[in-house]
Design a protein around this nucleic acid. Structure first.
Length: 888
RNA sequence: GGGCGAGUGGCUCAGCGGCAGAGCGCCUCCCUUACACGGAGGAGGACGCAGGUUCAAAUCCUGCCUCGCCCACCA
C-alpha cells in the first residue's frame, strides 16, 4: 500500500490508469492461452472487423461483451482464448481503395490487377492495423499472439483446400447463371448483399400487335428498354381474357420480332394487364419461365448497364437513358396505351447503392441444400443455442428456404479461385496447381480463373482456419470446437449460418455451442449511428478527448444490453452516469483504505463472531455473487451489471459504509474495529472481482491498492456464491434497522427540522426481543438518523401528546414536536393514513372474495393475510396519533 | 405480402399473472472530514387502443394503431 492515502485525488481519472494496466497485462502475457490439455478451454472467435474499419460503437459493444465472457471464464479457471483478427473484406476494401484511386482520376483498370493488389497491400500495411490499437484501448484481452488476417498464407491455403474439398464432394458447381450484377463495381454480389430501395417509377402499358395484323396484346412493364430483348409474352393459363391468344404470335415493338404468346402459372393475372413480356436475358423470373419454355435469352445490356449493339439505334445508351428514349419511341409509334406512376422496390448494391442488373455470366456456386440439412439439425437438437432464443426461428426459417450461394466475384482483392480454363477446349479444371496439360484435349494453355471468392466464403472458415486447419494441429484439437459466438443480428445468415455449415462439413462438429445476438446501437432518436450523417458517437473520442475512459464506455453499453430489445439507444449522457459510478467506487476505496490502517487480511472469522451488520453485508454479497454469476451464464448482461452497481452503491456504500463508520469511530467494543475492517475489505475486494470483467482497469487499479493475494485481479478467482454467508436473521434485523432510520429521516424532513435540531426520536416497540435488537442498534440509529438522543419508552407509558408518527414493522417511530408543527403532523399522518387505507381496501376486497380464497395459491392467500395484519396495525397507530392530535 | 421486436413517470429502460420499479431529469434540505461526478427526503404513472380469459392482467389470448428491423422473383 502506498503511503499518504490522503494524497489520492478525490476524483478518478481513468486515462493514465487504463493505458498503464493494459500495457502491464500485455507485457506479462496474461492474454495468451497456450494449448494446455490439463485445462478446460473457453474459446471465442472475434467477429472480424474489416481492415478498412475504424472502431465504432457497434464494435465497442460487440467486443466488450466478448471480453466480459472471456475475463469471467478466465477468473473461473477456464483457459480463455479469444482469437482476434481482421478480414480482407474484398468488396468493402475495393470500394475504399477505388475511392482513393478516383481522387487521382483513376480506376482499378488503369492500374491492372498486379499494381492494384500492390497498392492495396501497401494501404493495408499502413491503415489495416488501426483497429487493433483501438481494440487495445478498450482493454480487450484477446490472444494477440494468434492474431490472424484472412489473406495470411496459411489462411489462404485453408480457403483453397475448402474450395477443393467442396468441389470434390459435389457441393460446388460452375456455369452460366443469372446473378445480381453491379454495373458500378463490375462484379456479381450474392442475394444477401442486395438491398432494396423504394423508388418512384412508371408502369408503361404497351401494345404488342398481333403478327396477323390483329390488335395483339397489351403488356405492362417498368423497363421498356428491355423490350428489345423480349422473346415472348406470357399470360396465366386460366386467364379467360387471353386464353384465345395463347399459341398465337405477336410482334415485339421496335425490333419487330415475332414471338409467341405462352401460358405460364407464374404470371400473376392481377398485376398490370395480366400479360407480361418475357425477357430471359434481363429478368430472373423471365429467365426461369424462358428456361421452362425453351426460349432464347438475348442480351441488350452490357456489364456497365449500357445498350449493346443488339440494341440497334439505342446502342451505347445507359440503361436509364435508354428507358426514356425507348418509351418516347413507343409513344411516337402509338403503342403506349397507358402510363401510370408506380412505386417499386429496386435492388441496389449494398456497398455502392448502384441499381443492380440481373445479368448472365459464368459463375461459381455452392449448392446449399445438402450443407444446410445438418446445420438445421444441430440447431433443432439444441447443439447450437441462440440467445435470445427468438433468433433460432429466424435462422431455421432462412436455412429451410436456402438458395444456392454465388461465391465468385469479378474483383481482385481476395482469394483467387483455384480453377483453370483450357484455352483450347474450354474445359474447366479445379486443382490447387496449374495443370501441365488439359485433361480433356491435352492442350497446354491453361489460365487461372480470374474471379475471386466472396469474402464470406473465407470468413466462414474462421473458427478453424485460424487454428491450422486443414493440418491436424494441437491448436485445432484443443480449441475446436469453440464456445460462444457474439454478434449482431445483421450477419446471422451471412456469417453465423455459414460457419455452422462449414464447421460441420469439414470438422464434423459445430464451431460453437452458443450464439449470443446483441442489440444494435442506435442514437437516442432511434437512428443508426453514422459518422457521415453526424449521428454517431465515436468511442475513441469518448474515451480519450472526453475523458470517460474505456471502463465507463464498457459499463454503459453492457448495462443497457437487454435480451428483450433488439436496439440499444445510446447517448453521451449515459457515459456521464457511469463516470459518476466510477468515481463512487473510487471514493469507496479511498474510504476503505483510510480505515484499513494496521489491518492485515486474515482467514475468515466465524460468522457468529461478527457483528450483525457485517453478517448482513456478507449475506447480501453472497446473494449478489450468485445473481451476477447466474446472469452471466444466461447472457443477461444488463442484469449482471445492474446487480453489481446496486450492490456497491445502494447497499455497500449507502448503508454498510455508513453503519461501519459508527463502529470504526472508537466506542465500539474490543475487537470490533478489526471485524469491520475485515468485512469492509472482504466485501469490497470481492465486489471488485465481480465487476472486473466489465470494468477491468479501475478494478485492477483499486484492487492493487487494497490488500490482495496474487499479482493481478485478472488472475484472481471468481467469487464463489457460497451459502455459508447467507444469513436470514442478520438480513431481517438490518433491514428493519434501515426501515427505522428511513422513517426517522422522513419524519424529520417532513417536519422541516434543521439537521442540527436536537429532537430525540422515540421508538415504541411492543415486542421485547425487537426492542432489545433496536436498543443494541441505537448507536447506528443515532448516527445515521442524525439524532442526538434516542429513547425507548415503555409501551405501557403514555405516548407524547404531540408527535409526528410513522409505523414500520411493529415499531412506532415518534418525533415529538412543538405546537407550531401540529399542522405538518396532521398533514403527514393523514396522508399516510390515506395510503394505508387504500391498500387495506384492496387487500380486504381480495380476502373477502370466495373466488380468491378458494382458487388462489395458499401462500398467496397467506401473504395477503399477513399484509392485512400489518396494515391494520399501521392504521391503528396512525389513527391513534391523529386522534390524539385532534384531542390535544 | 410474410415474420420478428418495441410502445410502462419528462428521457433511457427493468418488471412479463398476485402491493407499479431503477437511473437520469425535476423539487426541498444538507459542504454530516470517502465522494457535490456527493448525501438525505420528496413529487411524478388511465403500463399504446379495444375486446376476452382469470378469484386476480402492465404481465396471458384476439384484433387494431404507431415506430423499428428482417425476409419475399408481382413484371
Amino acid at each position: 500500500m502506498a503511503a499518504e492515502p490522503e494524497r489520492i485525488p478525490t476524483t478518478y481519472d481513468p486515462r493514465g490508469v487504463e493505458q498503464r494496466w493494459y500495457q502491464t497485462w500485455l507485457a506479462r502475457g496474461y492474454f495468451h492461452a497456450p494449448v494446455d490439455p490439463q485445462r478446460r478451454p473457453f474459446v471465442i472467435m472475434m467477429p472480424l472487423p474489416n481492415i478498412t474499419g475504424d472502431l465504432h460503437i457497434g464494435h465497442a459493444l460487440n467486443n466488450t461483451l466478448q471480453d466480459v465472457l472471456i475475463r469471467w471464464r478466465r477468473m473461473q479457471g477456464w483457459n480463455s482464448m479469444w482469437m482476434p483478427g481482421t478480414d480482407h473484406a474484398s468488396i468493402g476494401t475495393h470500394v475504399v481503395i477505388e475511392r482513393e484511386l478516383a481522387k487521382e482520376g483513376k480506376t482499378r483498370f488503369d492500374l491492372g490487377r498486379e499494381k492494384f493488389l500492390e497498392f492495396t497491400w501497401r494501404w493495408k500495411e499502413k491503415y489495416g492495423g488501426i483497429i487493433y490499437s483501438q481494440l487495445k484501448r478498450m482493454g480487450f484481452s484477446c490472444d494477440w499472439d494468434r492474431v490472424t488476417f484472412t489473406l495470411d498464407p496459411g489462411y489462404a491455403d485453408a480457403v483453397t483446400e475448402a474450395f477443393l474439398r467442396l468441389h470434390a464432394r459435389g457441393h460446388i458447381y460452375y456455369g452460366q447463371r443469372m446473378i445480381n450484377w453491379c454495373p458500378h463495381d463490375l462484379t456479381s454480389v450474392s442475394d444477401l448483399e442486395v438491398e432494396y430501395q423504394e423508388v418512384a417509377s412508371t408502369l408503361y402499358h404497351v401494345r404488342y400487335p398481333g403478327a396477323d395484323g390483329s390488335d395483339g396484346i397489351v403488356i405492362a412493364t417498368q423497363r421498356p428498354e428491355t423490350i428489345l430483348a423480349d422473346v415472348a409474352v406470357a399470360v396465366h393459363p386460366e386467364d379467360t381474357r387471353y386464353r384465345h391468344l395463347v399459341g398465337r404470335q405477336v410482334v415485339v415493338p421496335i425490333v419487330q420480332r415475332v414471338v409467341p404468346v405462352i401460358a405460364d402459372p407464374r404470371v400473376d393475372p392481377e398485376f398490370g394487364t395480366g400479360a407480361v413480356k418475357i425477357t430471359p436475358g434481363h429478368d430472373p423470373l423471365d429467365n426461369e419461365i424462358g428456361a421452362t419454355h425453351g426460349l432464347a435469352a438475348p442480351v441488350v445490356l452490357d456489364e456497365r448497364g449500357r445498350m449493346t449493339a443488339e440494341g440497334g439505334a439505342f446502342a451505347g445508351l445507359d440503361r436509364f437513358a435508354a428507358r426514356q428514349v425507348v418509351a418516347a419511341e413507343l409513344r411516337s409509334r402509338g403503342l403506349v396505351v397507358r402510363e401510370e406512376p408506380y412505386t417499386t422496390a429496386v435492388a441496389v448494391c449494398e456497398r455502392c447503392k448502384t441499381v443492380l442488373e440481373p445479368y448472365i455470366t459464368d459463375q461459381w456456386f455452392v449448392r446449399m441444400a445438402d450443407l444446410a440439412a445438418p446445420a438445421i439439425r444441430v440447431v433443432r437438437e439444441g447443439k447450437v443455442r441462440f440467445h435470445p432464443e427468438r433468433w433460432r426461428k429466424v435462422y431455421l426459417d432462412w436455412m429451410e428456404g436456402i438458395r444456392d450461394w454465388n461465391i465468385s466475384r469479378r474483383l481482385w482483392w481476395g482469394h483467387q479461385i483455384p480453377a483453370w480454363h483450357c484455352r483450347d477446349c474450354g474445359e474447366v479444371v479445379v486443382t490447387r496447381q496449374r495443370p501441365d496439360r488439359c485433361p480433356r484435349c491435352g492442350g497446354a494453355t491453361l489460365v487461372q480463373e480470374e474471379q475471386i471468392l466472396d469474402t464470406w466464403f473465407s470468413s466462414a472458415l474462421w473458427p478453424f482456419a485460424t487454428l491450422g486447419w486443414p493440418e491436424d494441429t494441437p491448436e485445432l484439437r484443443y480449441f475446436y470446437p469453440g464456445n460462444v459466438l457474439v454478434t449482431d443480428r445483421g450477419i446471422i445468415f451471412l456469417w453465423v449460418a455459414r460457419m455452422i455449415m462449414f464447421g460441420l462439413e469439414f470438422l464434423g462438429e459445430v464451431p460453437f455451442t452458443d450464439v449470443y445476438i446483441h442489440p444494435t446501437v442506435l442514437t437516442l432518436e432511434g437512428r443508426r449511428m453514422s459518422k457521415s450523417m453526424g449521428t454517431g458517437i465515436d468511442p475513441m473520442e469518448m474515451m480519450d478527448q472526453r475523458g470517460y475512459g474505456a471502463d465507463a464506455l464498457r459499463f454503459a453499453l453492457v448495462v443497457r444490453c437487454s435480451q428483450q430489445q433488439q436496439d440499444l439507444r445510446f447517448s453521451e449522457k449515459m457515459l456521464e452516469d457511469v463516470r459518476n459510478f466510477n468515481n463512487k467506487i473510487w471514493n469507496i476505496a479511498r474510504f476503505v483504505r483510510l480505515n484499513l490502517e494496521g489491518f492485515a487480511p486474515t482467514a475468515a472469522p466465524q460468522r457468529e463472531a461478527l457483528g450483525l451488520i457485517d453478517r448482513w453485508i456478507l449475506s447480501r454479497f453472497a446473494r449478489t455473487t450468485a445473481e451476477v454469476t447466474g446472469h452471466l451464464e444466461s447472457f443477461e448482461f444488463d442484469k449482471a451489471a445492474k446487480a453489481i452497481y446496486d450492490f456497491l452503491w445502494s447497499t455497500y456504500a449507502d448503508w454498510y459504509v455508513e453503519l461501519a463508520k459508527v463502529d470504526l469511530s472508537g466506542q465500539a467494543g474490543p475487537g470490533r474495529r478489526e471485524q469491520v475492517q475485515w468485512t469492509l475489505w472482504r466485501v469490497l475486494e470481492g465486489a471488485l472481482r465481480l465487476l472486473h470483467p466489465i470494468m477491468p482497469h479501475i478494478t485492477e487499479e483499486i484492487w492493487q491498492l487494497l490488500p490482495h493475494e496474487g499479482e493481478s485481479i485478472m488472475l484472481a478467482p471468481w467469487p464463489q456464491p457460497s451459502a455459508q454467508w447467507l444469513d436470514a436473521r442478520a438480513e431481517q434485523a438490518v433491514e428493519r434497522l434501515i426501515q427505522v432510520i428511513r422513517a426517522i429521516r422522513s419524519l424529520r424532513a417532513d417536519m422541516g427540522l434543521a439537521p442540527a435540531a436536537a429532537v430525540a426520536p422515540l421508538l415504541r416497540v411492543a415486542d421485547d426481543g425487537r426492542r432489545a435488537e433496536l436498543e443494541a442498534f441505537s448507536p447506528y440509529i443515532r448516527a445515521l438518523a442524525r439524532a442526538g438522543a434516542l429513547a425507548f419508552p415503555s409501551p405501557a407509558a403514555a405516548p407524547p401528546a404531540r408527535a409526528a408518527a410513522a409505523a414500520v414493522d411493529g415499531v412506532e417511530v415518534l418525533l415529538p414536536v412543538g405546537e407550531a408543527e401540529a399542522e405538518r403532523i396532521r398533514h403527514r399522518l393523514a396522508r399516510e393514513l390515506e395510503r394505508v387505507q387504500q391498500d387495506l381496501g384492496r387487500v380486504e376486497a381480495r380476502l373477502g372474495s370466495d373466488g380468491f380464497l378458494s382458487r388462489a395459491a395458499a401462500e398467496v392467500v397467506e401473504g395477503e393475510r399477513r399484509r392485512r395484519e400489518d396494515l391494520l396495525r399501521r392504521r391503528e397507530t396512525l389513527a391513534r396519533y391523529l386522534a390524539s392530535l385532534a384531542a390535544g
